[in-house]
Design a protein around this nucleic acid. Sequence first.
DNA 1: TAATAATCCTACTATTCCGATAGGAATAGA
DNA 2: TCTATTCCTATCGGAATAGTAGGATTATTA
Lengths: 133, 133
Amino acid sequence: MFSASARTQYAIRAMTNLARRPNRTATAAELARTESIPAKYLEGIMARLKVTGLVESERGKNGGYRMATDPANISMLQIVEAIEGRIKPVGCLEHEYTCAIVDGCHPRSFWLGLKNTIDTYLSEKSLKEVSEG
Amino acid sequence: MFSASARTQYAIRAMTNLARRPNRTATAAELARTESIPAKYLEGIMARLKVTGLVESERGKNGGYRMATDPANISMLQIVEAIEGRIKPVGCLEHEYTCAIVDGCHPRSFWLGLKNTIDTYLSEKSLKEVSEG
DNA sequence: TAATAATCCTACTATTCCGATAGGAATAGA
DNA sequence: TCTATTCCTATCGGAATAGTAGGATTATTA
Ligand code: FES
Ligand code: FES
C-alpha cells in the first residue's frame, strides 16, 4: 500500500536527471544508462511525460528530450499524475463525490484527509528541489 | 499509486464497526453483512488483525471478535500495518537504510519525506475518531 | 541520396499480485 | 450430539506490472 510503482520511480529519476541539464537534450538511451533504467521501457515513460507537456522532444539524429519548462515550476504531483493518470475504482479514495455507500461510511473523511495530505505534499515539492536533493 | 487495497478498506470498515460496539463481540459474518464485505474474505482479514493484537476472538458458539483495547488508543497506522505487513522491494520508499544506488539517487529524501508525511497522518488518527467520522 | 540515430508506435509475454471462493478441522456452548 | 463459530490451507481467475520485440517515422550528416 502506498508503494510507488517502478514506472513512477523511473519517471522521477529520469526527470530529475533531465532537470540537471538546462536547455540541453538527452536521449532516452542516455537517461536510461545513467539512471539504470531499462532503455526500451523508458521510451514508453517518456512518451507519457511528453503528452502531458512536461518535456519536449526532437526526433531524428541529435534528437532527444529536454525540459519543456523551468523545473522550479513543475510539481512532483504533476509528474506522478502524468504517469498514474488512470483512475482506479477503489471506493472511498477515488470517487470523491459519488460513492455507493457514502451515507453509512464512517471512514470516508479519513480517506479524503489522507488523499489531501498526500496531494499537498506532492504539489508543494518542486522538481527543482528534488533534483538537487 | 497510493491507492488503498480492498483488503485495507475492508479492514478499516470492519474495525470502525467493531469499535462502535463497546465490549460486545460480533461475528465475522455479522461484520461482513453490515459492511458489505465478502464473508469468507473477511475471515482472513480478521486473522491478521488478531495476530497483531488489535482484536480478540472467541471460538465456538456465541463466539466472535471484540476490540482488544480502547479504540482511542489504536492508530490507523497500526491497522494499516497489520494488513500490509509485507514489505515490497520497491527501492527508495521501502529500503530505509540500504539501497543499491543510494549515493547517486537524488529523489531519495523526497521519498522519505513522503513516507514520513503519510506515516504521521496515519499515526495521529485514532480509530475512535475515524469510527465516529 | 544513402547511412545513421533518434523518437514513436503497436503488439506481445511473463510474472506477480489481488480479490475471492472452497472445504473442512478445531473449538465451544446448548 | 448438534450447532455455530473461529481457524487453517489450498486454489482460482483476472488484472496489473515490468519488460521485450520489431519496426515505422523523422531528422541530421556525410
Ligand atoms: S466506501 Fe464509499 S465513502 Fe467509504
Ligand atoms: S533508488 Fe535507492 S534511494 Fe533512490
